[in-house]
Design a protein around this nucleic acid. Structure first.
Lengths: 227, 227
DNA sequence: CTAACGGTCAAACAAGAGTTTGATCGGTGA
DNA sequence: TCACCGATCAAACTCTTGTTTGACCGTTAG
């Protein structure tokens, strides 16, 4: 009655010893999947718990039972996705460092920053929803989510340090600012923004070609960093 | 009973013939001011009509009486602010064209794009709230607002055309993409993003100096456009 | 003077939100 | 066998939301 902590929490979607194997932890997974899609498409406040459970085909109480609250469900999805994204970025940065004797050039650093979310956005990846979710969380999320985004800059520090190493002649704060600008380029990659771009260009711009878009972004950002 | 159109609508905040001069149309202005600030700081869905009227010191029914609905109030603020911003940008672009025989260089075009929202964000301007509001509207706004943002690209077309003129050697779609990247740089200028930047740089970056920030943004974006 | 009008007010309304509650079901282990 | 336990279910609860209502007040036009 007092507190609503999540139950035992078997690390989620882990098919370990369950009574009814047909929908044991399937409920949790269905909720997570439906919630992420609805949140990404319609926004956090525009989606009710009833919308989620209806979409997932589960009972209304499932959200509070498995996650404690709607906000906690949001934060859980957010935590997973950002962790995944940061892990993938860190891996690419690490590989780039290996390829360049620990001193990767600016373009390779930026590639590690840009490519993961871009690759997720491809139709074959099917994770464009996750990217939209993360971008949306940045402005519409809970205060807890924004706080986490604000304070946890550890993954960004890796990139900042690498960029400082690639441009040791540049003042550090200048590097930080330019990294900030690069991040803005990514966050602008939303459905609505692409729509506007399409209209502006009379359909001349298509974001379907991942490699072409990545090259465009890298050309622009690398030149900006080299200024 | 059937429809809730705005009353006569005396063009808003216009002190024309009123019964009680002390708070005649002042109510409307108070509501607009309070609503803009609250929406900008807390988000659209997180602010209730009661919050607005309490902050404005007016009656709860004022919003529906003067604006028809909460959404209409939002759209009204949004319409004004974007119109103001676009007007100021267009003016700067026009002046730049005058200074350069109708063919302003890339940097001057981008300055007309960047400077107005940056200048609004200065403490002495006191319109940082309006900038935050516009940025927030881009992702959290009503469907009507997003639709307006998507479809009304006329003001952007002026900038796109000018940029095409400044870089005639570049494919047009490349220009559109790079303009898209530049817009992303602006939209990233939110309180939360600045906070993260501060933490990342251990306080080395301060956005207080307008001219320095504008120069940084122009250096970065111009170099990107010249790539 | 008086009828009409625009604006403000307190109060209530209906709809929807997130959350909680017991009951029920189906395996598990003593 | 039977008591337990996690998971699911329908239903209700409480709170907040945006909106509407009808009365009241001061001014203006006839």
């Amino acid at each position: 009655m007092t507190e609503a902590t999540t139950p035992p929490s078997p690390e989620l979607a882990a098919p370990d010893a369950a009574p009814d194997p047909e929908r044991e932890a399937a409920t949790k997974a269905q909720v997570l999947c439906a919630a992420e899609r609805l949140f990404a498409l319609q926004g956090f406040q525009n989606v009710s718990v009833r919308d989620i459970t209806a979409e997932a085909g589960v009972n209304l109480a499932s959200v509070n039972y498995h996650f404690g609250s709607k906000d906690a469900l949001l934060f859980e999805i957010f935590r997973r996705r950002t962790a995944e994204l940061n892990r993938e970025r860190a891996r690419m940065l690490h590989e780039a460092a290996d390829r360049h004797a620990g001193k990767p050039p600016v373009r390779e650093i930026l590639r590690a920053l840009f490519e993961p979310p871009l690759r997720w956005s491809t139709p074959e990846s099917g994770r464009g929803i996750s990217v939209q979710f993360i971008i949306r969380a940045r402005s519409e999320g809970t205060e807890a989510m924004r706080e986490a985004l604000r304070t946890d800059v550890s993954h960004l520090r890796r990139f900042a340090d690498a960029l400082v190493g690639a441009r040791p002649d540049l003042p550090k704060d200048e590097v930080y600012w330019r990294l900030h600008f690069c991040l803005g380029m990514i966050h602008n990659n939303r459905f609505a923004e692409f729509d506007r771009l399409h209209i502006l260009s009379d359909g001349a711009t298509r974001e379907s070609d991942l490699d072409a878009l990545l090259a465009r972004m890298l050309d622009f950002a690398e030149a900006g960093f080299m200024a």
